[in-house]
Design a binder for these strands. Structure first.
Lengths: 215, 215
DNA sequence: GTGTGTGAACGACTTCACAGCC
DNA sequence: GGCTGTGAAGTCGTTCACACAC
């Protein structure tokens, strides 16, 4: 039973495959008992096709047993390794508003290795105030702090005008991945991973669907 | 200058096209002055290709002028009509936690026609409490309330165990679109539009990217 | 028999390139 | 000359179907 686990960048894996892998993992982890799971079963759980499941997994190795399916426990372990879930990711949030709080409270966020170890703001009224178990710090201190104990992921949760400024500070602080909640396109060097989340866009897609149906 | 504006379902428009249309709209609206915009310029703004911009728009009509580009004002008007942005969408949030609050506070959410007109919970301690300008109501009252003044979009912001129950109530209340923040797959009749947002999944995609780069 | 792993076929989305119009 | 609109070509992701392993 050879597990190649070629997590390397030798083959390019599509965005959608990664998305589904995370979903597979969540569903596998929600199974009550460790047992064998077929691609048919997994597909039904996450609303995709069995072939899709097998193809997605085959990018990273052969985790199943022909005639039997996949061992849930083994597949969980492999997916965690592939996705880097389980590693402790140190996160800093810039912008001490409700978005950051919602994130910290999001079910399964803290419990999955995503640990908020720093919160920053530029508002003097907020700096020094408590935030969950932390204290809100001055944004200007971010690079210095990161020099001592680095951050893996930076969360931009400030108004759009300041989004790029914050991103620049994060780059300066050697942060390698940015999750951007501000509704602006962020420009960053190519070695930095930037993802944008915009709630309004999600709702506008719903709005489009509703508009189409009405006619 | 004929604007076909075939917003109908005669041609199937891809998910990604809709996503980009919303982004185009946001950027156009952020332009300081009404003027002509070329597909080249729009593409640069939103990090895509000029051909992509033109193709996306061409699904819905011919909004530009050859040799000149697109009138920003006209394009904004058309995109708003296509996407249904500007219409007032009545939203109910079920689950009076931080996610709902973050949503209400999200920049540009309320100001774009998305109006939260009802908040529900099942926790007796929360029911009756004020929430923004509303009062938290009993989830059991949702279908009755919707009978009087219907909701367009329902937001599920409850723990995953209750997600499907809430969805069922929403279907009963004739809600046509559901935005699901609970980390469970929601089952609903096909005529209902369901979108799922899962922050943890977004972060795990970042985690994957970080893991890949490290090697 | 059962269910994986995977090349091959298919379909969907993107990019090209150029005709058409200003 | 400049830029849109769009069929055609190309690329990428998904589905099929079957050999292979248990």
């Amino acid at each position: 039973m050879i597990h190649k686990l070629e997590t390397g960048a030798n083959r390019k894996v599509s965005e959608s495959t990664v998305r589904r892998l995370t979903v597979y993992l969540h569903y596998l982890e929600s199974l009550p008992e460790a047992r064998a799971v077929s691609s048919d079963e997994l597909a039904a759980l996450v609303a995709t096709t069995p072939a899709q499941v097998r193809k997605d997994l085959s990018f990273f190795g052969s985790f199943g047993t022909r005639g039997l399916g996949y061992s849930a426990a083994e597949l969980i372990a492999n997916l965690r390794k592939i996705l880097g879930v389980g590693e402790l990711w140190r996160i800093c949030i810039v912008g001490a508003g409700k978005i950051g709080l919602a994130l910290a409270q999001y079910p399964g966020f803290a419990g999955r290795g995503f640990t908020v170890t720093g919160v920053y703001d530029c508002d003097p009224a907020k700096i020094g105030q408590p935030w969950e178990s932390l204290t809100i710090r001055n944004i200007d201190d971010l690079p210095k702090d990161a020099g001592k104990t680095p951050y893996d992921i930076g969360v931009i949760a400030v108004p759009s005008e300041s989004g790029q400024d914050v991103a620049n500070i994060m780059v300066e602080a050697n942060i390698r991945a940015i999750m951007n909640f501000a509704p602006v396109q962020i420009v960053a060097p190519p070695h930095i991973v930037v993802r944008m989340v915009n709630m309004v866009l999600e709702f506008e897609a719903l709005s489009f669907a509703l508009t189409q149906r009405a006619e």
